[in-house]
Design a protein around this nucleic acid. Sequence first.
RNA 1: GCGCCCGUAGCUCAGCGGAUUAGAGUAUUGGCCUCCGAAGCCAAGGGUCACAGGUUCGAAUCCUGUCGGGCGCGCCA
Length: 548
Amino acid sequence: MTTDTKSALEQILTEGVRQRYPEAQGFSVVLEKPRRPEHGDYSTTAALQLAKLVGRPSRILADEIRQATLQAVARTGLGELLEPVGPGFLNIRLSKGAQQGVIAQVLEQGARFGRAPAAHADKVMVEFVSANPTGPLHVGHGRQAALGDAIAALLESQGQTVTREFYYNDSGAQIHNLALSVQARARGRTPEEAGWPADGYRGEYIEEIARAYTAGGGDAGDLEAIRKFAVAALRREQDADLQAFGVKFDVYYLESSLYTDGKVEAAVRGLQASGKTFEQDGALWLRTTDFGDDKDRVVRKSDGSYTYFVPDVAYHVTKWERGFRKVINVQGTDHHSTVTRVRAGLQALHLGIPSGYPDYVLHNLVKVVRGGEEVKISKRAGSYVTLRDLIDWVGRDAVRFFLVSRRAESEFVFDVDLARSQSEENPVYYVQYAHARVCSVFSQWGGAAAGLRGAPLAALTGPRELALAGRLAEYPGVLRSAAAELAPHAVAFYLRDLAGEFHSYYNAERVLVEDEATRTARLALCAAVRQVLANGLALIGVSAPERM
RNA sequence: GCGCCCGUAGCUCAGCGGAUUAGAGUAUUGGCCUCCGAAGCCAAGGGUCACAGGUUCGAAUCCUGUCGGGCGCGCCA
């Protein structure tokens, strides 16, 4: 759909190189954006990379490559190959037509601009958040929600069919603790008193649930009824948090169903059949060290119950069986030890599942700082700061933009004071403001953006205008590489850059000028900017307001 | 002790399939609204890319080691 200029040029150069040098069959030319404008719009170090392979000086190769591809590049009308410079950098200067062309493309494709055509690819699953219903969502869940949802959207943008899944445990030991805690509250006990459940939950929400339970005529002696009530209440609360955050899931998968459907038993039988299990100290073990783990793992405890490892494996088997050939799990780095274990369990079952299945995006934890000190508690949840707190403090858009703006691996310091004092100069507002500004120009103008499709663009010749157009042209590539690397932060950075380029242009040039050709062309440029801003913001789950 | 992740400007962070003079925001300083929204723009100062070796014509980027920080190393989940 979007055949961008850069890809087209890369392809021509790659073909030229492969034809010219028999030893470079696997080589691909990659174009980069030079820092300095005099080096053209695109640049490649292909000649330098090939020098070793071919065994001749890079400068000479650069000349040869240029000669070999000069005509093919010229024929496209996209641009021209400049004389090689330095040790053999090959630079390309785009034609004005190529630079302007992207504007027409954006207006033509609208919300589809930047997206790859639907691929006949395998179904993809992104599993994220997966919080157990034992308390409100914390800031780490918020990061997972922002990351996971954006990763899913990125993969969709590349034509893949994506399922967003939330997995949770509604029946284990933690749930039992939850029920005991609510029961204790229902009986009038407080966490400060002796006799409070040992691993009980202490947040204020426990009391709320207990109060609601008794108010509804619930029996404080009926632990099972309490469990159901509490789980339902917390599921509702988490759903409300996610809704407030703008994240939707396609599937909620219950861990308890793995037991009732016999999938846990099946997994154990499969592991035993693999010959990789052994008995020791009354427990059943799996030799996960055969698959790269640093120690073997218990499958069935000496008391006959299973470790959490078993349903985990069974769960991932269902992902495979449900037809998901690519699965991405978004989790905190505190879970990184499960990666090897789950993969080992899947390998032991010999189901033909690839050894790297599933993929993981592990993010570092979020540290909330306020008044120069780390905040570890909140009134409602007790031992942690909630996602809801963050949303209340700075707003949904700002939280989503913030949380998706950093690489998953970076440790996230969320400075509350900063976020609050800067809530008006948060980067997200900078981007949204650019969008609102374009909308404002259009309402001043009074015409319809749709009428600008096919508008003549020849009047766009200023360096700022061409740079802006060039920035728009980058968008498809940004999505492609962000999707490939499962790195949505690249989208946030791109949007900031695009907004910056627009603000700069807006300040330097007037859009609604007398001359009709110039006015129309500039309006088309603005409409294209607005479209790409809206597309990118939508992808990371942030609104694109027309007024602020 | 072992494993994974991270150390880039005062602060928060990009860049890390090597390549032309290391970037942005914020903070600081100085300019710009009779003109499409100043939640904006323009400019200045600010970095031995933790440290030490190595590979390379060329390293923030790749390799090794050291130091510092985070997380994980249960018959908990």
